[in-house]
Write a protein that binds this DNA or RNA. Structure first.
Lengths: 226, 226
DNA sequence: ACCTAAAAGTGACAGAAATCACACCTTGAT
DNA sequence: ATCAAGGTGTGATTTCTGTCACTTTTAGGT
């Protein structure tokens, strides 16, 4: 009971640029899969012959190192492509990807995807949009990481999750403390301290793993200057 | 005495995908300019209606902040596009750009550039390549910044300059210490100390502003673990 | 060759956060 | 209910590095 791409209600912004015949052709080289929380859907350095589209759920993109803790690069939200950046340049995956919730994904064969790009400039333009948007979002995050110390980094992280990922001032953390630390290049203990401090200062409210941003202005201020 | 795009010897990798009529059309909406060292060619938040192509020379891309020191994002080498990432998404420039040597650049009107992308998927694909390559290169740098302490960051910086920018184990620093510091989110003083240390350890040789990598293996090791 | 201003080097110091060691919760399995 | 194991909270300690205050060097103009 595979959903057809033509009437997929989770479709990407880009596929509206495809003609119905292009869509049917893509569909032939696309297959769908579901994974449960914690599943690793792609491992760093694996050969890649498909683009992944995340229909629903959340995925963590991370880099693994020999001697150091993993670094989490970003959280990928539903209706996004995964690993687009290696479409034209790499044959192996630059990063690893793990489901941090139940997810539904589609694999689209790379050769087909490239062919669609070459054949349809409007589609290509949409893909360029996706690439640039993602790239700028990561740039902003990385820049803020580099100029802040821990409290500021954690404040920035909460804003990122709230605004760019969950789209809500109240959200459940799907990551453990150690993973949050890996997102901001800090340590589990420092995350604890920062969250506790933000809580006691009434900037955020924390109940279990559910965060609510109470004082948005103050949080933004801390993210900028802290 | 404007050079025509068709026989430009500094042309981009992407324009080979253009037909001669497309090239002529592009040429009509392209203009060339030279700047001397230190010239600021685009300022953050300026409205942007052209893509810039760097024919020769080196440019520094940086972000300016209200309260904090500038952050240098990357050094852009000849035969690259500048600010491609805002082509489809922004109407204003996300960053500032300054010439760190004599440069020759071409401005290509954005509307024309977009039109070429929409009309020619092969050209679009080349642009996607440029975008992904740049994005991955920055990702790598940012990741290494976050996981290292100062000596490691400086080692990584030297490798970046040597391998990705100048393509030589021996190169002249076109940046002052403070700018190097802004590249790795550190301070002028720490850069001095790190360079001195690398020098006394015989990992690099420094004569004035000319750097030579003496012990490449060791430098890579420091960049990875230091 | 001299002078000035900007850039770079240097050491002392203090503040921030990583590390370490351990205690305390959860969670799910038996 | 008990137990184990993974996740989390907490304080003491140490290391790193940003900051400060100062000197020395370099570069460009007269």
């Amino acid at each position: 009971m595979k959903t057809s791409c033509s009437n997929c209600s989770f479709g990407s912004c880009a596929i509206v640029a495809l003609s119905s015949s292009e869509l049917r052709a893509m569909e032939k080289e696309t297959w769908q899969a579901d994974f449960s929380q914690g599943a690793i859907i792609r491992v760093q350095n694996d050969p890649v012959d498909a683009v992944i589209y995340l229909r629903s759920g959340f995925v963590k993109e991370y880099a693994r190192h020999q001697t150091m803790p993993d670094q989490v690069i970003q959280i990928i939200k539903p209706r996004s492509y995964i690993g687009l950046h290696s479409l034209c340049t790499d044959t192996t995956s630059a990063f690893s990807y793990q489901a941090i919730s139940e997810i539904e994904i589609c694999f689209i064969r790379k050769t087909k995807f490239s062919q669609l790009i070459r054949g349809n400039g409007h589609f290509a333009r949409e893909i360029i949009k996706c690439l640039s948007t993602e790239s700028m979002s990561n740039h902003r995050r990385f820049l803020s990481l580099n100029r802040n110390q821990t409290y500021g980094k954690v404040a920035g992280l909460l804003l990122y999750l709230s605004e760019e990922i969950y789209g809500n001032r109240s959200f459940g953390l799907q990551l453990k403390r150690a993973e949050l630390a890996q997102l901001v290049a800090s340590t589990r203990e420092s995350i604890t301290r920062a969250l506790r401090w933000l809580h006691t200062e009434n900037v955020i409210n924390m109940d279990k793993n559910h965060v609510t941003i109470v004082n948005f202005e103050r949080l933004s201020e801390i993210a900028r200057h802290g």
